[in-house]
Amino acid sequence: MAGNSREPGRTVTGRAFSVLSAFDAESPRLSLTEISQRAEIPLATAHRLVGELESWGALQREHDGRYAIGLRLWEIGLLAPVHTGLRSTALPHMQQLHERTGANVQLAVREGMEAVYVEKLSGRRSIPVVSRSGGRLPLHTTGVGKVLLAHAPRAVVQEYCARGLARHTPYTIAEPGRLVRELARVRQRGFARTAEEMTVGSCSVAVPVWEGEDVVAALGLVVQSARAEVTKLARILAPAAEAIGRQLDEENR
């Protein structure tokens, strides 16, 4: 459940953020009472903050009285560098990959201990996947996540493993030592793969997007396990990732 722990000294800004954080992919529309409960603030406070946020455009009231994220907040989100820079640079290359393979094409960055999906392209020939643009998934169960974790600082990997590795399918790598060895292989061969580790029946392959000496994102494909030709998919991905990295370098000079 979304929401923050009770903090008697929370500022008005903190409480407003807790209202916005009450919404998530599973609960995009909430009643005032639900917002109060999920944000862990009194109903009267929720009523006041929701009213202010609605007036500003951060929230919008639906015909049934429930609330959803407003258009103005979405517009501001589009100004984030990850959208104006990385996504806009990568999108043409992602479209070419999708046209060529018919697979799900994904672009992700690491935020803390999760993979955040900047963009995802799919079509009628693509298999269903749990990822979505703007969504978050674990690092150890996804191809893009493994790439990002493999190139993260050692302290991040240690903390990630120490938190415990959730097993999403019978094939998920849930042992820290095994994951660390897998991450070393990712760095060595230049790509990551998963085999039904997030969703049974699907396989993912991903490569790093380098900007200078830093991995700033991961580019991946998700296909049916039965159709997965991992090495071939990695060879298809590599030139696109390199082109995205070169463009980012040029744009940031």
Results as ranks from 00 to 15, higher is better:
Val223Trp: 08
Pro170Arg: 04
Ser31Met: 07
Arg187Asn: 07
Arg185Lys: 03
Val186Asp: 00
Ala234Gly: 06
Glu119His: 07
Gln60Gly: 12
Val147Cys: 05
Arg167Ser: 07
Gly212Met: 02
Glu211Trp: 00
Val144Pro: 01
Arg110Thr: 00
Glu111Asn: 06
His168Gly: 13
Ala44Thr: 10
Pro239Glu: 04
Gly220Lys: 01
Arg167Cys: 05
Val12Tyr: 02
Pro8Ser: 13
Leu78Trp: 08
Ala39Met: 07
Leu221Gln: 03
Arg163Lys: 03
Ala166Met: 12
Ala108Cys: 06
Gly85Pro: 00
Arg72Met: 09
Ala206Met: 06
Ser27Glu: 14
Val130Gln: 15
Glu75Cys: 09
Ile244Thr: 12
Leu107Tyr: 04
Pro128Thr: 11
Glu99Lys: 08
Ala150Gln: 00
Glu26Ile: 09
Phe23Ala: 09
Ile244Lys: 12
Asp64Ala: 13
Arg253His: 11
Ala238Tyr: 08
Gly145Ser: 08
Glu75Arg: 12
Lys120Ala: 13
Thr84Glu: 02
Leu43Tyr: 14
Glu62Pro: 11
Ala115Cys: 11
Val157Gln: 08
Glu34Arg: 07
Ala25Met: 10
Phe17Leu: 10
Asn252Ser: 15
Glu40Val: 15
Trp56Asp: 01
Thr101Gly: 05
Gln224Tyr: 01
Leu71Lys: 09
Arg100Asn: 01
Ser55Gln: 05
Arg132Leu: 14
Gly190Ser: 14
Gly57Tyr: 04
Arg246Thr: 15
Val147Asp: 06
Glu242Gly: 13
Arg110Ala: 03
Gly14Ala: 01
Leu86Tyr: 05
Gly245Gln: 13
Val216Ile: 06
Glu182Met: 04
His140Ile: 12
Ser5Ile: 14
Gln96Trp: 04
Leu248Thr: 10
Ser27Cys: 11
Ser36Tyr: 14
Glu75Lys: 10
Ser131Ala: 15
Ala192Tyr: 07
His93Ile: 04
Pro176Tyr: 02
Thr194Tyr: 14
Gln224Phe: 06
Ala108Glu: 03
Gly102Leu: 06
Gly245Ser: 02
Ser18Trp: 05
Val216Phe: 07
Pro138Arg: 06
Ser18Phe: 06
Asp249Glu: 15
Tyr117Cys: 11
Arg227Cys: 12
Glu99Arg: 08
Gly112Arg: 02
Glu119Met: 03
His168Met: 13
Glu119Asn: 02
Arg72Pro: 09
Thr194Glu: 05
Ser131Leu: 14
Asn4Ala: 08
Ala234Leu: 11
Gln60Phe: 05
Thr33Tyr: 14
Leu221Pro: 09
Ala162Ser: 03
Asp214Pro: 02
Glu52Pro: 00
Arg227His: 11
His151Thr: 01
Val180Gln: 04
Gly3Leu: 14
His47Asp: 15
Trp210Leu: 00
Gly9Leu: 06
Glu213Pro: 10
Phe191Ser: 02
Glu211Lys: 05
Leu71Ile: 11
Lys146Pro: 10
Thr141Gln: 13
Ser18Ile: 01
Gly164Asn: 00
Pro170Ala: 06
Ala155Cys: 05
Val180Ser: 06
Lys146Asn: 11
Glu52Ile: 04
Ala228Leu: 02
Leu78Ile: 07
Val130Asn: 13
Asp24Ala: 09
Thr89Asn: 08
Ser21Gly: 11
Leu137Val: 15
Ala234Trp: 03
Glu119Val: 00
Ala90Thr: 06
His168Ala: 14
Glu34Trp: 13
Arg189Leu: 00
Ile244Leu: 11
Ala90Leu: 07
Ser88Ala: 09
Gly164Lys: 10
Glu242Phe: 10
Gly51Gln: 03
